[in-house]
Design a protein around this nucleic acid. Structure first.
Lengths: 149, 149
DNA sequence: TCGATACACGATTAATTCAGTCGTGATTGT
DNA sequence: ACAATCACGACTGAATTAATCGTGTATCGA
């Protein structure tokens, strides 16, 4: 299960991607549209900003807008930022490798090879899917959802 | 990341699968071989027993043995039992479906279709891999690990 | 220049989960 | 009877999750 925070982050990015690329959106507008607690979303957008995915303007007429093009923001990137490693075992993580303490060696670990395959297929989907791939979905065009069944 | 508990469960099952099918193993022997806290493993084996995956004998000369054949115990089955759903979203879980509270509808959810694909490929691996597929690995035959690279 | 509106950011919190540990009881082979 | 083994509920400390609170800073428009 991904965290609630990651879910909010992804949906906020979709909203930003759907908006006019030049026009900043208020936190409160995004929060209202997606039923996200405003203060929590504020925190999330700050994380995304530090990572260079979005930018913000302060003051009246401020708000948030995408810094990276929507088709260059992958699900994998966002999930790693918010939830941490995608791999099921610390010894398989790219961004936060850690040896399993209880494990004698990675070569003879009985289960590592299985989760290595899991990590590969999962990364295949998450690093191969971008925010732009979600634009057809959502309030704007409920019809699009039918396409996938 | 899977839990430590799930990791222990899978490795304990591999140990049981490697043993003589008729001979019960003590909790303490499995715990020692895999560096698992004994009391914690006791709890885990009870879970696996309730599920019908292993059985136990009490008293002196007691111990645990597999109830199901190793090639019929899938990773998916064990992970669902110990860690819960494999799906990344509650609304995609087979064993514990729950509607996402903050989500208007599943048809128009902007991110659901992506995690549906993730769930499919993950299940493909986890439900398609059994404890028997791990027998070549581990202490018994460190050479086998080389085969995969 | 003033004030309303927006983002910035650290601190705090309640609830839950994780990873065990403890203690006692029941069963069985010798 | 005794020792070894599993059974099982209760407990615990640390970490994580999902927020909330409060104050500060920037900016626009009148």
């Amino acid at each position: 299960m991904i965290s609630q925070k990651a879910k909010y982050a992804l949906r906020a990015l979709v909203v930003l991607a759907r908006a006019d690329a030049q026009k900043a959106l208020f936190i409160s507008d995004i929060a209202d549209e997606q039923n996200i607690p405003k203060k929590f979303l504020e925190q999330i957008l700050l994380d995304l900003k530090r990572e260079g995915i979005v930018m913000s303007r302060r003051g009246k007429m401020g708000g948030y807008l995408l810094l990276k093009p929507a088709d260059e923001i992958t699900f994998g990137e966002v999930l790693r930022l918010i939830d941490g490693p995608i791999a099921s075992l610390p010894c398989l993580s790219k961004i936060a490798y850690r040896r399993c303490e209880d494990c004698e060696s990675e070569e003879t670990c009985e289960i590592r090879h299985v989760f290595h395959r899991v990590a590969n297929v999962t990364r295949g989907v998450l690093d191969g899917t971008t925010i732009a791939d979600c634009l057809a979905y959502g309030k704007a065009s409920p019809i699009a959802a039918v396409l996938e069944g």
